[in-house]
C-alpha cells in the first residue's frame, strides 16, 4: 500500500470516557488523530520517534507513546489523554512543586506518572526512575519532577 493511499477505514474507540467513531487512513498516526481529528492537542509531538515521551497517553491504563502507534491499532480500545485528567494527585503534585517550566513535556510526564500510579501504586525509587527516564524535560533539572513524584508515591524527599 502506498502512503498516498487515501482509502479510509472506520475505527471505534473510547477516549476520556467518550465513544468515538472516525474514519482514518491506514497510515494515520494516533498522536495526529488525537490532535488533528479530535482536537486533543494536550499530547505533544517532540520527536515522532518514541524518544521523548511528550506524546504519552494511556491505552487500557498503560502509558504508550502515541507517536509510535497507528490509529487503526486502537480499534475497540480505551484511552486517556491529559485532557481526561482533572485534579488528579499527579497534577496536584506537579502544581505544588512547580514541576515544569515551559510546560511542553508536562502532559507526557503527568500521564506517564498516572499510568505508573495505576499499575504500580507502591513503586519504589528505582522503578520510578525506569519509568520516567522515557520522558525528556529540557527546562527543569528533574529535581522538581522528582519532588512531585515523591509526593505522589509518598516517598521521603
Amino acid at each position: 500500500m502506498s502512503s498516498l493511499d487515501s482509502a479510509k477505514y472506520p475505527v471505534e474507540f473510547e477516549v476520556n470516557g467518550e465513544k468515538q467513531t472516525i474514519r482514518v487512513r491506514a497510515a494515520d498516526i494516533l498522536l495526529y488523530t488525537l490532535r488533528d481529528n479530535l482536537g486533543l492537542t494536550g499530547s505533544k509531538s517532540g520527536c515522532d520517534n518514541g524518544d521523548c515521551g511528550a506524546c504519552t497517553i494511556l491505552v487500557e491504563g498503560f502509558p504508550i507513546k502515541s507517536c509510535l502507534m497507528l490509529t487503526v491499532e486502537v480499534d475497540g480500545k480505551q484511552m486517556t489523554t491529559i485532557e481526561g485528567l482533572r485534579n488528579s494527585p499527579v497534577q496536584n503534585a506537579f502544581v505544588k512543586n512547580q514541576a515544569f517550566q515551559c510546560g511542553y513535556c508536562t502532559p507526557g510526564f503527568i500521564v506517564n506518572c498516572e499510568g505508573l500510579r495505576n499499575k504500580l501504586p507502591h513503586a519504589d525509587k528505582e522503578t520510578i526512575r525506569v519509568w520516567l527516564e522515557s520522558n525528556i524535560c529540557r527546562c527543569t533539572s528533574y529535581e522538581e519532577i522528582r519532588n512531585a513524584v515523591k509526593d505522589v508515591f509518598s516517598l521521603e524527599k
Partner: peptide
C-alpha cells in the same frame, strides 16, 4: 515570594495552546 506561575493550571491540564496547537 514563591507565587506559582500564572499559567500553572493550563500547563498541567493540556489546554495550553502552543503555536502548533492552533489550527
Amino acid at each position: 515570594k514563591s507565587i506559582p506561575r500564572k499559567e500553572t493550571w493550563e500547563k498541567v491540564t493540556g489546554i495550553t495552546r502552543y503555536v502548533n496547537d492552533i489550527s
